[in-house]
Structures are given as C-alpha cells and as structure tokens.
C-alpha cells in the first residue's frame, strides 16, 4: 500500500517523475549492480523515453544515476559533462521500436572488470522496475534488500546458498530463479530482511557454483 511520501514526494529534480526521477533511479540501480565505477555505457532509449528524452532531461538523469546521484541531486543538470569526465557513453535513440512498457531503457555497462546489461522501466511516480539482467528475466524495484546471484545451473546450488544464508541467520522473504534453457546459467534474486555484512557476502560468493553475487540495498 502507498504511504504518505508517495503522495508528499518524492523530492526530485524536475520535470517528470517517470522520465527524470525514474530514469535517475534506473541508472543508480544499474551502477550498484555493476559494483564498480562505470568505464563505458551504452544507453538505449525506447518508447516515450526515445520521443521526449531531451525535453525531460532523461539522458541527464540516467547519466546522473550512473554517477551515483540520487533523483534530487542538482548535479543531474550538468551530468552529461560530469559523466564525460568519468566515462565514455553513447545514447541510442530507438523511436518507434515496439516495447512492452512505454518508458523503457536498456543499459549496457562495463567497469574495469565487470559488465552488466539491464532492461529498466519507469512505471510512474519515480518508481522503477528492472525486468532483465544479462538476458535473464527478473523483477527488481530497488525498494527491497536483494541479493542478485549469477550461478551455474546445477542441482544443489540453491540448497547450498539457502543453507549458507540460514547459517548466518538471514531470513529470505522472496526468491526467484531465472534461467536460459537447462544446464547453462541462472540468475537468482533473493529478497532478505536485513543487509548482509561483507563477510557474509564473501561466503555467498565462495559458495560452489556461484559466479557473482551483488547486494542491492534500497535506493
């Protein structure tokens, strides 16, 4: 259910909660998932983002998010030049390409060691969803504490992970498993009640079969 700060808020840089604040949050969530500063970014804009990005400052907002700025950070207004100093970026504007949701963008990011590709949608009021990570369908909204885990698709990996979390007294609220065909790789999203400490994350990362683990804390 909505709460009072969905009505009196968010505090944000204008002009549009969906096209500006939402775009900034998608960028910030992608930056968190990359787990390191962005070196190179390709941003594909679809639907209404493609039609109106210049007037809504969608490009500035997503670049601000990639720099780690919150949606109310006034540096968003100069984030194209600020981003230019920090990393290389390119926008691809795909007007008229059909998409499921009118406010959709695809971010392909590379850091020094990691790469990530996410599909983000802005669903209104500054709220967002990440619907795809590296080609795997997921459902993230940046409002919960979530572990995103890339692993091999092999029997027993889930058991190892859940018992690892159980032994650390971490409660799982929700869990999804997404895979591309059998026996290749898997992306899991595990919603947990309280943030896992770095030591616990290291244990998760060293669990057999786990390729990568990222903790997302609420934006």
């Amino acid at each position: 259910m909505a709460h009072i700060f969905d009505i009196i808020g968010p505090i944000m840089v204008g002009p549009s909660s969906s096209h500006t604040a939402g775009a900034a949050r998608i960028g910030k969530l992608a930056r968190i998932m990359l787990q390191e500063p962005v070196h190179r970014a390709e941003i594909k804009l679809y639907g209404s983002f493609a039609e109106t990005y210049l007037g809504h400052g969608t490009h500035l907002a997503v670049l601000g998010g990639l720099l780690g700025y919150d949606p109310d950070d006034l540096r968003i207004r100069q984030s194209d030049s600020l981003a230019r100093e920090a990393f290389g970026y390119e926008f691809v504007v795909l007007s008229g390409v059909p998409v499921d949701h009118p406010n959709t963008m695809r971010l392909s990011l590379a850091g020094e060691t990691n790469q990530i590709d996410i599909l983000g949608v802005s669903v209104g009021g500054g709220r967002i969803r990440v619907t795809e990570i590296d080609g795997f369908p997921v459902k993230l909204n940046g409002e919960n504490i979530v572990l995103v885990i890339h692993s091999v698709d092999r029997p027993g990996v889930i058991t190892l992970l859940t018992s690892c979390l159980a032994s650390e007294n971490i409660n799982i609220g929700n869990m999804t498993v997404s895979r591309q065909g059998k026996g290749s790789s898997v992306v899991m999203t595990i919603e947990i009640d309280a943030p896992a400490e770095p030591r616990v994350l290291d244990r998760v990362r060293s669990t057999e079969g786990v390729q990568r683990a990222t903790q997302i804390i609420p934006l």
Binding site: I8, I11, M12, V13, G14, S17, R77
Partner: peptide, 18 residues
C-alpha cells in the same frame, strides 16, 4: 516553472502538479 527547468521540487502529488 522550476520543475520544468530541472530544479528541485517535491512531487506532491506529482511533478506536473507540484
């Protein structure tokens, strides 16, 4: 006007009606 100029506002209830 500040909202349209990418200033900081409270979207209460929305940015357009802030």
């Amino acid at each position: 006007e500040l909202n349209s100029a990418m200033g900081r506002i409270v979207a209460a209830p929305t940015a357009g009606a802030s």
